[in-house]
């Protein structure tokens, strides 16, 4: 994936979906349809073998390996930097797990299960490794492919990326780290006086 040539996502996904059975094992099949005409209806709720086990109250939505993958995905969306912790430190994967565990929306659950699977299929295709085992640069390169093809909303991996970013952003910026460390939000406290533009004195803490 070092090439600077624009990636043809539709062309590429034919290849990775064809080879995915041997790479990942048949247990992960069936994969979503490949055709460019894939409609949203075709990814509508399908019966899922794991559903009954996860329906138990308190049970996690993600398996441990899925959870590890979501941690790395969310950290790639909002990484730690010199200013503050990232999505992993803010426990965004736990937040997403809760959302998916509690949601009544089976389409959303399916999108996440399929999406996580497709991420690893893609990672194998482009980098020969699972996403968790890929280098940070390779992870960024992979998500960039999806981020650059947002208009292809018929592809489940693109829809998954949008959903991954949405829930990561929501989980991160509603966390302690997001509000206090990253944004240094000054509100939700009692003020003597609101400081407006006219009377902004020297910076005070």
């Amino acid at each position: 994936m070092s090439t600077k040539d624009p990636i043809d996502l539709r062309q590429d996904r034919r290849q990775w979906l064809m080879t995915s059975a041997t790479i990942l094992g048949a247990s992960l099949l069936p994969l979503p349809p490949v055709s460019a005409e894939t409609s949203q209806a075709e990814t509508a709720p399908q019966p899922h073998p794991a559903k009954t086990a996860e329906a138990k109250s308190g049970a996690r939505f993600f398996t441990p390996s899925q959870h590890a993958l979501v941690e790395e995905l969310s950290e790639t969306i909002i990484p730690a930097d010199s200013h503050s912790g990232g999505a992993k430190a803010a426990k965004v994967a736990d937040y997403i797990d809760q959302v998916l565990r509690e949601t009544f929306d089976d389409n959303q659950k399916t999108l996440w299960r399929d999406g996580l699977r497709l991420i690893d299929v893609m990672s194998q295709h482009y980098h020969g490794k699972t996403f968790v085992n890929a280098t940070p640069e390779d992870r960024i390169a992979l998500l960039t492919v999806l981020s650059d093809h947002l208009q292809m909303t018929d592809l489940p991996e693109v829809r998954f990326f949008v959903e991954l970013k949405r829930l990561t952003v929501t989980g991160y910026y509603t966390s302690k780290i997001g509000i206090h460390d990253e944004l240094e939000y000054k509100g939700n406290r009692i003020l003597k006086e609101y400081v407006g533009c006219d009377d902004q004195g020297p910076a005070s803490s």
Partner: peptide, 21 residues
């Protein structure tokens, strides 16, 4: 500023997205 930042619909992701927001 607001408690939940405006501008999270900034394109992209990663370190530059975080810094932009």
């Amino acid at each position: 500023s607001a408690m939940f930042p405006r501008g999270t619909d900034t394109h992209g992701f990663g370190a530059s997205f975080k810094e932009e927001v």
